[in-house]
Design a protein around this nucleic acid. Sequence first.
DNA 1: GTCAGGTTCCGCTCCGCTTA
DNA 2: TAAGCGGAGCGGAACCTGAC
Length: 325
Amino acid sequence: MSDSAERIARRLKLPHLRLTLALANTGQISAAARALNMSQPAASRMLAEIERLLGAPVCVRGPKGVELSETGLALAERARRILTELSEAGRDVVEISAGKAGTVYLGAVTAPAIDLVVPALQRLKSAHPTIEAHVEVGTSDTLVPRLLEGHLDFVIGRVPAHLDVSAFDIRPVQPEVVSLLVRADHPMAHESRLPLAALVDYEWVMQPAGTPLRRAMEYSFTSHGLAMPRTSLISTSFLVLLSMIWRSDAIAPVAEEAATLLAGERGMTRAIAALDLDERIEIMPYAMITRADRHLSPTAGLFYAEICALIERGRGFAPHAARRG
DNA sequence: GTCAGGTTCCGCTCCGCTTA
DNA sequence: TAAGCGGAGCGGAACCTGAC
């Protein structure tokens, strides 16, 4: 490390980082000051001190507020990570000193949320009754950025193509299989070994373009030389999807686990059925994803290990699994 | 001219260090 | 251990700047 970098590292304080981050979030010195419970002049002085220390402007002053400079943006990004780490450290200390499991924040795409997260929580609850899981279910495009921002401990999903995979520890699980849901009295509900070609004239409920499930369906149709069927509704909401197929002849592709939960032999409803396709449609494998530069909290580690154990026992990791160190 | 937002100046309080 | 000193941090008031 150079002398000037060493000098900056030695003199930069946590309030400096908090202010830089607050400036990034609010775009105003006065608003940042309010957010940090300090006066605006004090924040202004602290900002000048940071700029003196760095030897570069942190932000560009304007009549309606401030805009972070390149230096400011870089510092704010570091500040976000450092303050998140500190918050995580606090959580670790509380959990360890209390001698009990605390809270885990995780994200999952639909299938593993049903098939892995819920059973893992049930198993952990017997040994750790105080454990609490905050589960965000969504698409990988929304979940993985939240992992990077420090809002989630880990994600069960896929790393979006635009993100650098070296930022993550990735442990692939086996591929997801697609099921097609319809209402129970749908004209095709009782047909067996249906070819895709028999379904192209119906309306479909799809996930947004670019999502793995949508791409798997697009690939299946085009590989059979079929045109994509008419999409009447695009939604990531499972409830909206169910409402649509329940009220119409629409067909909705979902993860097999979700279909089993709803329409399986011991499923939750008799109003929904899964079509019997004559082929197996697979989505690219999802994975256990953690941030490469961050250790899991004790509780998150416990949850992660329980899910891995479930996978090992019941399903198995994909052959090319990359084990965490 | 008015308003919103930032800077500067001044004084107060708190805290750590030094010294008797 | 207590008193004195100096620096850091903060708030209030006044002032500056640019947009409308």
